[in-house]
Write a protein that binds this DNA or RNA. Structure first.
Lengths: 328, 328
DNA sequence: GCCCTTTATGCTCACAGCTAGAATAACGGC
DNA sequence: GCCGTTATTCTAGCTGTGAGCATAAAGGGC
């Protein structure tokens, strides 16, 4: 008698507050003190005509939010995905990325906005390479690499680490968020790796000690951090050719606000003058006459997103070069 | 009593023969004379530990093929997705893209290799813009646009058509395969639009006559042409930053073979000298000393894929410019 | 053997876009 | 009025790409 299949709809709901990207979490599985989880709801095969409508429905029910942009990310279906009703039913999770303008959560809901980079601290390079990388992650990865027997196996590990964490000539690739998380997972450097007998648990505990007992970054329940990594990677990629940022900003904004929001998601600082040029030449925004009452210096003009762009150019997005730092 | 959920694993298996991209089809639903379908098999929650393993398992069972590259595309879950066991169970389809080197199909299997561009003829621009576009599709789209009431609704349609089919200043975007198919679907210009009461059936039949009773391109069963469009779009996009082509080529090949394979998938002709420059500068291939016994002119050197690239550069792929034609 | 056709391969020029700053304008606070 | 801060404009230099010219190396017809 085959087990039944149940479908869960997972949402990575992202907003930006000022200069910090946030994700909506709920208190997680495993008692009240376990790690937080991404919100999710079951698909009701009777009521929900499409998957996306199902997602919007329970998000609206549970949090009162209307999602702006919604996009399917990936479907996770491994049998032993930590937690989840193990025995009788097989659980399939369809994960979504959703963007909203942040707002107060209706009181009484057990949800909270958490900083995305609490869970993936190595992804935030706005202040240059974070110390965590040089002090903790790279040494731990080196240990993991050395733990492989010399020869092709070790070279393989070295190559992967160099590529994903941008060591070689090639620099840091902001979109490889998932690759990096999965590498850390395999190396046993994130807390999730220790949980329920995944295949990785056997492989390589050596670097583990270096990461401390809890691994790098704050954990999420189940495999939700993997979902979050998928979401951030996708978001970073799509920023470049779709005007997604504007879903996160108020109706009018200054160019610096826009830039900060992009930087926040991309995890990198951008060159101000060039950013402005790209945005303006791309005709992504139009000035309203008004200005923002000075934020410390000369007042900035307020701009508005030109929705028409989507019907004019094939791939309108904010160019995302790879600028290291440069004076703000 | 909620209906059960069943999960189908759909495979878009792509190979390239000489100069033509092919997709594996099986004789479809609705009797033997119905349109062909993409092969699919059910997920067995008991036997298949992961979705991808499940897919590989039944593809191997049914066709004897071992898939090279496999990647998840999208999960389709609308309730009324044409065909499928309508009543009791809800069917979820997880669609995959798989690449193989083409080979003879074991006799007795009811599968066949079909040219991809039979189903999406407007996507093949290797000989310049196909006549079908100017003669059939654009006029039919114009009719559909005019059928909307003047004002924003009509401008909206015009904008979408211009973008997706590359009419305005912006040229043709090879990756928008799905957008184009969906636009044709909404405009009632593909055969599938007429089937089982989808939402589009109501909207706009006007352009329909222009397309003839069967619509543009050969149909596939259910919503499989949508899946194929998703696959082709994804493949075109990924070619640019992942060395996928090599999964489709023999161990050694000439640069022209490589170029033809890329052109075949991209649906566009490329500038020979520049293509060569990109491939060599990207260090994607290395020459074997040997040469291909002349193919009509000076013999060409045989090259081999440098697998190491994947551990050297972050985004190794074959540059895909937008060259119109140029002397071969 | 010579000429012609065909394909491979090498090289160069022009231009567009991007990187990185310098320079200038407009505000508030002292 | 001077200073620090932020906005906005401009420009020089570099690099990658688009396009084409030129040359090399085969085979076939005569």
């Amino acid at each position: 008698m085959p087990r039944h299949v149940t479908v869960g709809l997972h949402a990575t709901i992202v907003a930006v507050t000022g200069t910090e990207p946030r994700v909506l979490t709920v208190s997680g599985g495993g008692g009240d003190d376990g790690p937080p989880a991404l919100p999710f709801g079951p698909l009701d095969p009777d009521r929900h005509r499409t998957l996306e409508l199902g997602l919007r429905a329970w998000v609206s029910d549970q949090t009162g939010m209307d999602l702006a942009h919604v996009e399917q990310l990936y479907t996770f279906g491994d049998r032993d995905r930590g937690g989840a009703a193990g025995g009788e039913t097989r659980v399939l999770s369809v994960a979504y990325l959703a963007l909203v303008r942040e707002r107060e959560l209706a009181a009484g809901h057990p949800a909270a906005w958490e900083a995305v980079y609490r869970f993936l601290p190595w992804e935030d390079r706005r202040g240059g390479e974070p110390a965590l990388l040089g002090d903790g992650i790279r040494p731990a990865l080196d240990a993991w690499i050395e733990a492989a027997e010399a020869g092709p196996a070790r070279r393989e590990r070295r190559g992967r680490a160099d590529i994903t964490f941008g060591a070689g000539a090639a620099g840091w690739d902001g979109e490889r968020v998932l690759d990096r998380y999965e590498l850390l997972y395999e190396a046993g450097l994130v807390a999730e790796a220790g949980r329920a007998g995944g295949p990785a648990a056997a492989g390589a505990p050596p670097g583990r000690a270096a990461a401390g007992p809890t691994g790098f970054g704050a954990p999420l329940a189940f495999d939700h951090r993997r979902i979050l990594a998928t979401a951030l990677g996708r978001l970073r990629g799509k920023l470049k050719y779709r005007p997604l940022v504007f879903e996160l900003l108020p109706e009018t904004f200054t160019l610096l606000q826009l830039q900060r929001t992009v930087e926040t998601l991309a995890g990198v600082r951008l060159h101000k003058q060039n950013f402005r040029r790209l945005v303006e030449r791309g005709a992504l925004v139009e000035g309203t006459g008004r200005v923002e009452p000075a934020t410390g210096g000369r007042p900035a003009e307020l701009f508005r997103f030109r929705r028409e762009v989507q019907h004019e150019r094939p791939a309108p997005g904010v160019g995302l070069p790879g600028l290291p730092v440069s004076g703000s």
